[in-house]
């Protein structure tokens, strides 16, 4: 299926996929960068966000409200999980943190299964975003273009928060040097809680935005989690720009390789990850001395 129109279609599609992956991965990477915790429940939070949005959408019928309510819900969930569980794990080894978030992920997935069953549920996009848009070289689902826009906008907001606000400065200072924040006399507890909330929201927000594209199931987070890992490994753990770059690269690989042999798309993704690890182990935009 190698042809110029198809190449442009797939390239564009790669952007759309990549932007979403970038958004989810940035949540994972911010949490790790600031708190030093690898959140294995991130995939479950992506899924949970989708379901939260679904419930809100069912009750209000408004997509915008669903996104808003779902995101807020995920902040609350994130903060709760941080307060009740994660907080006690900062001083414990990385491995314990990985284990506990792994467990939380299982619990979240099974809770959703208990509440909603295993049937797929999906959210209708707003009426104006339904249908397809001709883009000259291709016909593309309008809503997916909207997703690309939303994801890009959300990434911009995150960028603004991280690089232009006080809280962002603190978070980035924490990424550079976790001791620094203590020295600055900032209440680390509140920052950590907030960051975990924001990270959970990024995952959940992506989950809601993606729900009209890919119908939800309780297991929806599994594949996403692995892809997110690949993205941050390629981009560099703890690096926000790295997550964005890694996301876009992953999206393009998945899309463009499908033109040649789609069954090998996923493997190509892992091959690129291996290549990065061999040539630049800290990731494309990662710092040498982290992890």
């Amino acid at each position: 299926m190698l042809s110029w129109p198809n190449f442009f279609s797939q390239f564009f599609n790669g952007l759309a996929l990549g932007a979403l992956l970038a958004l989810i991965s940035s949540g994972l990477t911010i949490i790790y960068g600031t708190l030093g915790v690898l959140n294995l429940a991130h995939g479950a939070m992506f899924m949970l966000g989708g379901y939260a949005g679904f419930v809100a959408w069912q009750h209000t019928g408004s997509f915008a409200l669903a996104v808003l309510a779902g995101s807020l819900f995920m902040v609350v969930v994130g903060v709760l999980i941080e307060r009740v569980v994660i907080r006690n794990f900062y001083r414990r080894p990385h491995e314990d943190q990985i284990l506990v978030t792994f467990g939380i992920g299982i619990v979240l997935v099974e809770l959703v299964r208990l509440g909603f069953g295993s049937d797929t549920v999906s959210i209708q996009p707003p009426a104006w975003a339904m249908g397809v848009t001709p883009l000259g070289f291709l016909i593309y689902p309008t809503y997916r273009i909207v997703v690309l826009g939303i994801a890009a906008a959300a990434l911009l907001v995150l960028y603004f928060v991280l690089y232009r606000t006080r809280i962002g400065m603190i978070v980035r200072a924490g990424i550079e040097d976790s001791g620094m924040v203590d020295i600055l006399g900032i209440n680390v507890n509140h920052v950590f809680m907030l960051v975990f909330g924001i990270g959970a929201m990024a995952a959940g927000f992506a989950g809601i935005v993606n729900a009209p594209v890919v119908a939800l199931t309780p297991d929806a987070g599994d594949t996403i989690l692995v892809e997110t890992f690949v993205v941050v490994v390629i981009g560099g753990v703890g690096s926000f720009p790295g997550a964005v770059l890694g996301g876009l690269i992953a999206g393009e690989i998945l899309s463009l390789t499908s033109m040649v042999d789609p069954s090998y798309s996923e493997v190509m993704l892992f091959a690129v990850m291996t290549l990065v690890l061999v040539l630049r182990p800290q990731g494309l935009l990662g710092q040498q001395d982290r992890a």
């Binding site: 299926m1 042809s3 129109p5 198809n6 279609s9 797939q10 599609n13 790669g14 759309a16 996929l17 291709l138 016909i139 997916r144 594209v213 890919v214 929806a220 594949t223 996403i224 998945l254 899309s255 499908s258 033109m259 789609p262 069954s263 798309s265 996923e266």
Partner: peptide, 16 residues
């Protein structure tokens, strides 16, 4: 692949 959540790249090929 089995259980692929997003079929966009395959579907684009089919659409084209």
């Amino acid at each position: 692949p089995l259980g692929a959540p997003d079929y966009s790249s395959y579907l684009l090929n089919i659409a084209n």
